[in-house]
Structures are given as C-alpha cells and as structure tokens.
Design a protein around this nucleic acid. Structure first.
Lengths: 149, 149
DNA sequence: TTTTCTGCAAATGCTTTGCATGGGA
DNA sequence: TCCCATGCAAAGCATTTGCAGAAAA
C-alpha cells in the first residue's frame, strides 16, 4: 500500500523543480542541475556538505557558495524545506517541500518521514484553543531507530 | 482553572535551579543568580541577548561569554531547554525545561505554550508505526497571534 | 587557600556577500 | 550580445575557547 510518507519519484520532482525555475526565468546551469538532482531525491535529507560533495564529484571546481545560493533560491521558490538543528547542522528536503513530521535517530542521524494521521487534529486543536492562525509547523521526534537500539 | 501550560511560579523554579546547582557543587555567583532569575521566569522565552541585557543592567562588566557558559551549564543539568531557529536566533525556556509544544507568532515573535492533550497520542502513534524509541520531541506551530492577524 | 568562575579577546564554524570572470539563452 | 551565475576570498554572526586575574567556599 502506498503511504503518504513515501517519497515522490525523483525524476518527477526534478521536472517540477526545473519547470518552476524556467517559469521564473532562472537559468539552468550544470551546477544547478546537479544540486536539483540531489534535492529531488533528498535521500536521507542531505546537508549542504553532502550536496557539495556530490556536486564536486561531477564538477570539481564547484564552490560551496554556489550550493548555498542554489539552496537559498529553491527555498525562496518553496521547492525545498530546511530542517535546522541546534548544533548548526541544517538538513534539506526537496522531495516533499512542505511541512511534515520527521523522525530523527540521534545515534546514526538518519531522518525518516513517518505517517501521522492525527497531526491534522493537533493543528485544529491549537487553532481552536489559542485563536492563532496557523501557517506552518515543525514536528520532529527524536529517538533511536530499530537498528540503533 | 489551572492549565498544564501555565507557568510555574518563578520563585519556585529559581529555588529548584539553585538546589540543583548546589547539589552538583557549582558556585552561585551574582552573575549566575541574575541569569537564573531571568530563566526561572522565562517570560516570552528569552534569547541570550535579552538575558545579557538584563544581567548587564545589574552588573555592567558582565560578558556575553558568561551568559553562554551559564546557559550551557543549565542545559547540561536539564534545567533549561533550547528552542533553535533557522535564522540562528536561539530562545530558552527555564520555566518548563522539558519538551513541550510552542506556538510562535511570526510577526511579533511572541512564543506561547498551548495545551495539547492529544500530543501523547501522536508520540504513541509514531512508536507503534516505526519501532523508534522516542526520547524527546519538538513540536512548534507558526502563525499569527490574535493581535497580529 | 584552593578551585572554580569571570571577562576579555581570539578562534571557530556555518553561512552570506562582493566582485571579477565565465557561460547560459 | 546581454545578463545572470559561478567561484574565490573576505566579511558576518552567533557561539566557543583559552587564559590570567577575581572571587566563591
């Protein structure tokens, strides 16, 4: 059975991202394409460093600044979300660029997307109780994955 | 009616924090006491900068490093929690130093603690679905408060 | 008196910026 | 050709660290 938390096919996401950039008259450079490919899959929710390493394997002269600039552009276009941590290690998700819960293993740093049907109820409960107009959320659970226990 | 999300009296929290530090043979300096007082109340969930400004009013020679060191000590002793943001602006809560949901106004930066009875169900759902052993969580909702809408 | 804490300044680590050169469209 | 993007190095910023002098206990 297909779950809501399952990843979207990377090719499909890549095409969506490319369309968005073209539509807004941004240029498709080889470096950008390489960054997009990593983020379209977003396997394990990559860090800037991991994107950089991957892109550098193909284009050795690439600078980190370019990765940061491209990621910033995609954030601005709502094509990636940023998951930030207290220790200053940011991770990204371009496969599902909308708020969704994460499950983070504190030992192996793996990040998994769980299915959480009751999350909508939570948001409703908050709105009802506080009168806030909720626009987005961040829901992360930390713990040990099955393998690390 | 008293809600779970209501703040603990600041004096009470201060005493708890002082006990913990004495118990572990840390010295109570005037600067530390001043920091503790701010964090015991944690009104609006203060930033390091705001703690610094408050302490400096009483002890003008205080350095930011001392604030950071004291906050780090309290984090280590589980007497404050850190709420980090992508833009690098960390906020702290020493009044309720255990994981709990936050409601953040994106306009006036106010942080409120809502009552969320169904949050426990969520954690259980995650454990059941994924086999993760959940140790902590972070649940933040972003939006506009009643005044800012 | 002993040991820890403070305050200063330098160092760190991630991220951003400025600018000359290069390369999409 | 015309701009935008790249790559490099310098600048920013919050936070951490090292160390000599100050002050708890």
């Amino acid at each position: 059975m297909k779950k809501r938390s399952d990843p979207v096919p990377a090719k499909q996401r890549l095409d969506q991202m490319l369309s968005k950039l073209k539509e807004h008259d941004f240029r498709i450079t080889p470096q950008r394409l390489a960054v997009l490919k990593v983020l379209a899959a977003s396997d394990g929710h990559p860090s800037v460093e991991r994107i950089y390493d991957t892109v550098k394997a193909q284009f050795p002269t690439t600078s980190v600044a370019t990765i940061y600039k491209t990621v910033a552009l995609l954030k601005q276009e709502n094509e990636v979300i940023e998951i930030s941590f207290p220790d200053g290690s940011n991770r990204y998700d371009g496969n599902k660029p909308y708020p969704h819960p994460h499950l983070i293993c504190t030992r192996c740093k793996k990040i998994v997307d769980p299915d959480l049907s009751s999350l909508e109820d939570l948001a409703k409960e908050v709105t009802k109780e506080t009168g806030f107009q909720i626009t987005t959320h961040r829901v992360d659970f930390f713990g040990l994955c099955r393998e690390c226990q």
